[in-house]
């Protein structure tokens, strides 16, 4: 599998580390235990297109949001995480 890092270009799978579903958002401070429990543990098991967090540890160390089809492994989009320096590369 190959992922096109927005900073480094197309790179091989071995440079990246998979974390998981990018959809759950960390609850704001003061959230209830149930909300945090959902965030920490509950995940959809998607057969199809999903957004995932990947880490380019073998390259620029950016966290990326990768849109991948879990059935075909087709990657349709790769975006840098909000804090990965996206503003600097955005044209």
């Amino acid at each position: 599998m190959r992922i096109t890092c927005p900073f480094c270009g197309e790179r091989e799978l071995g440079e990246f580390t998979y974390l998981g579903d990018a959809k759950p958002m960390r609850p704001a401070p003061g959230a209830s235990e149930d909300e945090v429990y959902d965030y920490v543990y509950l995940r959809d098991n998607i057969a199809g297109v999903m957004d995932e967090n990947w880490y380019h540890g073998g390259g620029c160390r950016a966290w990326l949001k990768v849109t991948r089809n879990t059935l075909t492994h087709e990657i349709s989009a790769v975006e840098p995480a909000a804090g990965a320096g996206a503003r600097q590369v955005a044209k």
Binding site: T17, L19, R26, N53, Y55, G57, R61, A62, W63, P80, A81, A82, G83, A84
Partner: peptide
């Protein structure tokens, strides 16, 4: 060492990009 770096980068880039 490596895992904490990865974790902190996740916190910085994904969880708390406003910092």
């Amino acid at each position: 060492a490596g895992l904490v770096m990865q974790h902190l980068e996740f916190c910085r880039q994904v969880l708390f990009p406003e910092l």
